[in-house]
């Protein structure tokens, strides 16, 4: 994990992780530790960490089909009013060539039928902007930004 302050005052963090839920957790915990005491640390209620976690979990689960040994690159630029993020992986492309629309789940069902998943893209889309996905034959690149204030 590398971090540096850019000329415009923004805080850049770059990380590489393995395609496991454990490494995703370790990376997020590490980023939080780096941000402690930084003036660019986003407010907790922006839920920036949730957006990053959901995208990374999807890469582990779908692009790499829950197999360890895949590389995931993460580049974060923390500015005062927004966090810009770029995710790169070398796994399977998104099935339809675009990220899911993230419709809200249907809760008007019996308890037994309540959904235990399918919240991820709804949360990502609700909390982020300027989502852009590109597959170039070898890698998937997803960019998005998260308003912080």
């Amino acid at each position: 994990m590398q971090a540096e302050r850019l000329e415009d005052g923004a805080f850049l963090v770059c990380c590489r992780m393995d395609s496991t839920a454990e490494d995703v957790r370790a990376t997020l915990t590490g980023i939080n530790e780096l941000l402690q005491g930084q003036e660019m640390a986003p407010p907790r209620d922006s839920n920036w960490e949730l957006v990053i976690a959901e995208v990374l979990n999807n890469i582990v689960e779908h692009a790499y089909e829950d197999r360890a040994g895949g590389d995931i690159l993460l580049r974060l630029v923390f500015s005062p009013d927004r966090l810009s993020v770029e995710f790169t992986d070398f796994g399977q492309p998104m099935p339809s060539g675009t990220p899911p629309s993230g419709a809200p789940v249907d809760l008007d069902v019996s308890v037994e039928e309540l959904p235990e998943g399918g919240f991820g893209w709804f949360l990502i889309r609700s909390l982020s902007e300027n989502l852009d996905y590109h597959h170039d034959g070898e890698s998937n690149r997803l960019r998005l930004s998260i308003p912080l204030r």
Binding site: L50, E54, N57, L114, P115, L123
Partner: peptide, 17 residues
């Protein structure tokens, strides 16, 4: 608990069932 993701939320729903 200061962080939960959709997997965690799903696990709580699963527990309720």
């Amino acid at each position: 608990v200061d962080f939960i993701d959709s997997s965690g939320l799903g696990a709580i729903v699963a527990a309720m069932k």
